[in-house]
Amino acid sequence: MFYLEQPSPDQQVLIRQALNEDVNTRDKDLEAIKEWLRKEPHLPDTWDDAMLMTFLRSCNFSLEKTKRRLDKYFTVKTIVPEFFTECDIARPEMQTIVNALEIATMPGMTPEGRRVHIARIATSDFEDFDYNYFARVIFMVADVYLKSEKLGSAGEVYVLDGENYRLKHLLKLLPIFAKNFSEFLPEAYGGTAGKLKLHWDKYLAAFEDFKPWFKEQENIKADESKRPGKTTSYEDCFGLHGSFRSLAVD
């Protein structure tokens, strides 16, 4: 079972301050969002309370910002369903992706209550792949993380190893991260948190554990035919004309 180490009591105080979270009003805010969902004809009537609370936290408990973010989350699942369906890493196309990546949320938190995430392409010949499956894996990681986050975090630290992205200058940043976050970095990055592959394997195991949940989520999305006013298009969501399928990535 995928597990995120939860913040200490002192970190929880810092996190609540950073997220503008009031323990006396957060349940009221949650109920307000649930009531809003029930009234929006194009959105799911109900959803996981813990996920809704995670969205509230990510929006610093701004109800309007939370509504906009939830609307976009459910709408994207309708606009690009190929990113959110058949989330089974046993599929050969998915195996190509997960065998080439290593993505991890590292154990523990920084003293300020931030999570540390690391991502890398683990092979230098990762060329021939389907972008839709790549995006699907990334969204699966995001959903597992959101689903597993219980108390929120005061922020996120992202480390992108660019060696196999042909952006080797990014590696110059690693000594800075190693100096300040060595407790949370893998051994290969000058840290003490074990091997990156070990932490990626935790996500892979979670994908199997979450398989029924992923299947259930395929139908929890916006219904654009019921949206009041103008329907949302691909361009509205991404600000791009055309499709990700037409992008040429060098």
Rank of each mutant, 00 (worst) to 15 (best):
K197D: 09
L14K: 15
L63M: 04
L173T: 10
Q217F: 01
P7F: 08
L247V: 14
A18C: 04
S225P: 05
L56I: 03
M51R: 13
E31T: 08
D10N: 13
G108S: 08
N99A: 00
P7M: 06
L170E: 07
N164W: 01
E208N: 15
L196S: 04
V116P: 08
G113K: 11
P44C: 02
N99L: 02
S182Y: 13
L204T: 12
N132Y: 07
E218G: 00
L151M: 10
D143V: 03
L52I: 14
E82Y: 05
A222S: 15
F184A: 10
K215D: 12
A206L: 05
V137F: 06
K172N: 14
R166L: 05
K67D: 03
L19R: 10
K197S: 14
V23S: 13
N24V: 04
R68D: 09
V80Q: 07
R68W: 02
E5M: 07
T78I: 00
H117C: 09
E127T: 13
Y189R: 05
M1G: 13
N180G: 11
P212A: 01
T75D: 10
A205G: 14
D201E: 15
E102L: 03
Y73I: 07
T192Q: 09
P41T: 05
V13F: 06
V80N: 12
S62I: 01
R166Q: 13
L247E: 10
D45H: 11
L198H: 14
F61V: 01
T123K: 13
M53E: 12
F134P: 04
D29Q: 12
I33F: 03
S58A: 12
D125C: 04
D125Q: 07
R120W: 01
M1W: 04
S182D: 12
K39W: 00
E235M: 06
F2V: 11
T85D: 02
D22W: 03
L185W: 03
T66G: 02
V116S: 09
A32R: 07
E149K: 08
L70P: 08
C87I: 06
F134W: 09
E224I: 05
A135Q: 13
T25M: 05
N60V: 05
K202H: 12
E127H: 14
F134Q: 06
F181Y: 15
W200E: 02
E235S: 12
I220T: 14
A248R: 15
A206F: 04
L196P: 03
T110Q: 11
E93P: 04
E187I: 07
L70N: 04
K150G: 00
G162C: 11
T110P: 13
D223A: 07
T232L: 09
M1E: 09
E21S: 06
I15P: 07
W213N: 06
E149M: 14
F61R: 00
P212R: 03
M94H: 06
R68H: 08
S148D: 04
G229N: 04
F55E: 07
W47F: 12
